[in-house]
């Protein structure tokens, strides 16, 4: 759209109204994020004051009803499952993007992309159900009940794969054609062109995509809630059950009161902080490249 400033094109009264209404809507929409954070903080304050941040690490266990608030097993579980998901999604997602951008014939590339876009819209609760019915029995053969860190990581990896693939492809697409042509002129074969020119040039965009995927995996609730087993324990193997921070919120919010409820808001605040940092880093990386 054309850029106007208030003083240049026209100064009709109705335009003044239009400008004020639209700009204030934009500010209201942007302010919602502050409202969210403000409410999380105000609900967290009782826990931080009465219980103190230190006890989230030093308490003996997570037994909120008997005043024990150790969050570490859940933080560890969240990080482990997220890491597992990234380890699965990164190589496969990047390969899928490279295939789509450099190898697939145009007609196939279009449909391949559509399939991936479609999968990014499948509800997490449906992925969770699929994992529960199909994948958990298979994983159970390795030991445990089937509801474990491994199952949750596998399904979560599948869920964030579209994010990795789509952002990587967008980054690869924005590599200037001359650079690739230059590679061909130097006698590079296709794999060298990709490895030596395309991937380094798209590095920032790919990294940004991985950060977005990490944020999504960290915040994902339903699939993990249905697949990780939800036992609050320090996990000792990948087929052991675990409970993530997000699953803990979803499980206990229904009956939590007073200090317990407040601790759940603290974990929400912690999640939003992690996500905001990764999204800002991803945004800065992408923006600089443009």
């Amino acid at each position: 759209m054309t850029k106007w400033s208030l003083s240049t094109l026209s100064r009709l009264k109705s335009d003044w109204l239009f400008t004020v209404v639209t700009r204030s809507s934009a500010c209201v929409a942007a302010a919602i994020v502050f409202l969210v954070v403000a409410f999380l903080i105000s609900e967290s304050i009782p826990a931080i004051r009465q219980i103190g941040v230190g006890r989230f690490i030093t308490d003996a266990s997570w037994h909120p009803l008997s005043d024990q608030f150790n969050l570490t097993p859940m933080i560890v579980a969240s990080l482990t499952i997220t890491l597992g998901a990234i380890l699965i999604a990164a190589p496969l997602g990047i390969s899928a993007a490279i295939y789509c951008q450099f190898y697939a014939p145009t007609a196939i590339a279009v449909w391949y992309r559509r399939l991936i876009e479609l999968l990014s819209g499948i509800p997490s609760v449906v992925f969770g159900l699929w994992g529960l019915v199909v994948l958990a029995p298979i994983v159970a053969r390795l030991g445990g009940s089937g509801q474990s860190i491994l199952t949750a990581s596998l399904v979560l990896g599948l869920m964030i794969l579209p994010t990795v693939a789509l952002t990587t492809q967008a980054a690869l697409r924005s590599v200037p054609g001359e650079w690739l042509a230059g590679g061909a002129a130097l006698g590079f074969c296709r794999s060298s062109t990709i490895r030596r020119i395309a991937l380094p040039a798209a590095r920032r965009g790919i990294l940004g995509g991985l950060l977005l995927a990490l944020a999504r995996a960290m915040g994902e609730t339903m699939a993990v809630l249905m697949l990780a087993g939800n036992v609050v324990e320090m996990p000792d193997s990948i087929v052991a059950p675990a409970r993530t921070l997000t699953a803990n919120i979803a499980l206990e919010m229904g009956y939590a009161t007073a200090g317990h409820r407040s601790v759940l808001f603290v974990s929400g605040l912690f999640l939003i902080a992690i996500v905001a940092v990764s999204v800002s880093l991803a945004g800065f990386g992408g923006a600089v490249d443009e």
Partner: peptide, 9 residues
Amino acid sequence: VLAAVPSVV
């Protein structure tokens, strides 16, 4: 940032 806030939050 709002777009990336986890749904449980």
